[in-house]
Design a binder for these strands. Structure first.
Lengths: 200, 200
DNA sequence: TGCGCTACCTACCGACCGGTAAGTTATGGA
DNA sequence: TCCATAACTTACCGGTCGGTAGGTAGCGCA
């Protein structure tokens, strides 16, 4: 069984798509990464678009697992959401990679999804809105208000995660390290502020 | 004089690069948009990279002009920064386009700038940090702390601007309109919260 | 033994990529 | 009037793209 080969291809594809985007990576690039030809890749995933789809489904599962852990860790909706959001920025490379892929999806979606008709982010956003509206201060808010607030937090989190290589290039490694530390602290405070504060 | 032709090419390039990224647009695409051949484009801008550079310089000038207006409008550093940040999200298509280009630059920078060695965003960020540290509550903060806070606000602003087509696709036009309204209101409150609050 | 299936391979296709070379056409100044 | 220059053009180049066609090698099972 070559489930392992398939998994290797999927893993390489995830990394490369996150780094360079759907249009910035060729299937030959991905196949090279695991020492195969692109025809071997096409044998496992019949088209590039299907491979990309499986990559997005993979990170959706990752997010869902993190969410389940956050929910299991506490009975307080506020704590659950805080843990979930902070988990996205915990500085492991894998978390940053997922953020990048999310951002790529937002940017490239217009071209890709409008032809494919698949909106990978919809369920993800709706779950976050549901978690937000379980928080006492947001219980009376409309779905739209909750989504707006959630999106601001997602922006603060993912924008930074995405910027890492650029900020490192601009400011150098040691100053970026200090920035990274400061960011984590301030983000937690920002989340608390938003969660405490009702919409109007 | 064909300064106009040059300008037309630059304008088309700005729109297309914002929509599809550096690697998602060919110089032939851009030239087609103004009814010329790609060789005509290469006559005005010798390479694709130079054209892209001029596009980024153009939006830098746009940002600088908006900043100058915000500074001229008030003597209060807090009001200046608020006006500047809110101007980025004022829902005109051009503002959203600039946000997309900024985001593309953050994402693609690793490939592009690391070879070119040009960091278009550095001056932009440093000016924002300077404005932040002119605000009373942030006067004692370190540059890194101010940058972290600024980056959270930039994230909240630009992430939303970038997501417009995707959110519109997921939720439809009318629900997106409601979200857009809610976003503006809540963003202003978020900016106030961050500006009032000292770092530690 | 032999059949079918999985997992790959080489060879190729038409389309497109950024860029070069070598023109043509129009303008404007000496 | 001549001639340089600007503003384009067509015709290419080598290379890469996603995908197809048609294999082959090995393995499990009847």
């Amino acid at each position: 069984m070559s489930q392992t080969t398939r998994d290797h291809l999927l893993e390489a594809a995830t990394v490369l798509f996150a780094e360079r985007g759907f249009y910035g990576v060729s299937i030959a690039n991905i196949a090279d990464e695991v020492g195969l030809t692109k025809q071997a890749l096409l044998h496992h995933f019949s088209t590039k678009a299907k491979l990309y789809g499986e990559v997005l489904e993979g990170i959706s599962r990752d997010f869902e697992r993190v969410r389940a852990q956050a929910i299991a860790a506490s009975d307080d909706p506020e704590a659950q959401l805080t843990v979930y959001l902070l988990a996205m920025i915990s500085t492991t490379p894998k978390d940053a990679m997922r953020s990048r892929l999310l951002m790529r999806e937002l940017l490239d979606n217009q071209r890709r999804a409008s032809t494919a008709g698949v909106w990978y982010l919809k369920a993800f956003l709706e779950e976050l809105v549901a978690m937000m509206r379980a928080v006492p201060a947001w219980r009376a808010a409309s779905a739209v208000e909750a989504l707006a607030a959630i999106y601001q937090l997602l922006g603060a989190i993912n924008y930074f995660a995405v910027s890492e290589p650029t900020l490192r290039g601009i400011f150098g490694d040691e100053r970026f390290g200090a920035l990274d530390d400061a960011y984590g602290e301030q983000l937690e405070r920002l989340i608390q502020q938003v969660l405490k504060r009702p919409s109007r």
